[in-house]
Amino acid sequence: MTAEIILFWLFAFLTCAGAIMVAASQNVVRMAFSLVLTLGSTAVLFLLLGADFVGATQLLVYVGGTLVLLVFGVMLTATGPFTRIKSSPADAILSGLIGVVFLFIVASTVTAVNWDGENGIDQKIAMGAHAKAVEGGFNPTQQGNTTRPLGLSFLSLRADRDLKLDLPKESSAETNTAPVVPGVSVVMPGVMPPPKSPVPLSTGYLLPFEIVSVHLLVVLVGAAYLARTKRRATT
């Protein structure tokens, strides 16, 4: 029983308990608190999974930003006692039942899959697709330090795939036989292929990164419009 395992169980428990409290509680302030607990614990789980940057972001954006937003919402709308808006027990029981069935379906389906290990999905794909991540997932041994790989991945420089391998040698043999990498796999027959390149580019995330900025701008304009009071035309 390593410390890692203990931490996992502890935060797994906290995550689930928080989530259940969010669902079960009738008091919106308690819900908010439980949500902080859940999201925070999830951030720790992220860290345990070796995603330190995402974990940190989770803490910053989610717990620090989104939740504060929600708490503001709670405060702005809390005019009367919260008891007034409680859901009826019948609703709760019904939803609970649906939830249990749903949980059974999702959990029993998802956890039954052999995700890694012997003859697991990772092996099958890694072998069949000639994926370059021989060891399956990303960052299995070296904990943390994901910031740089993440940053590079936006430029389609993939620490988990491209940079580990001897690129030119392998690619020249592979690209023609197994067109698996997105950039080239969908070359249309009868259409002029793009200029031949030694290595196919891995998926880079520059575009969504930029596009999201436009999205945020639009969304903020919308939110601002809705939140502000209508200015009266001065005539």
């Binding site: 930003g65 794909i125 997932g137 993440l150 993939r158 995330y205």
Partner: peptide
């Protein structure tokens, strides 16, 4: 998945975007 399957770093990138989009959605 990013940790255990060949999804690799893509998974983490996905989650980053989800966090951003969730924040935007929450605001609206």
């Amino acid at each position: 998945f990013s940790r255990f399957t060949p999804l690799g770093l893509d998974g983490q990138v996905f989650s980053l975007f989800v966090i951003v989009l969730a924040a935007a959605e929450a605001a609206v």
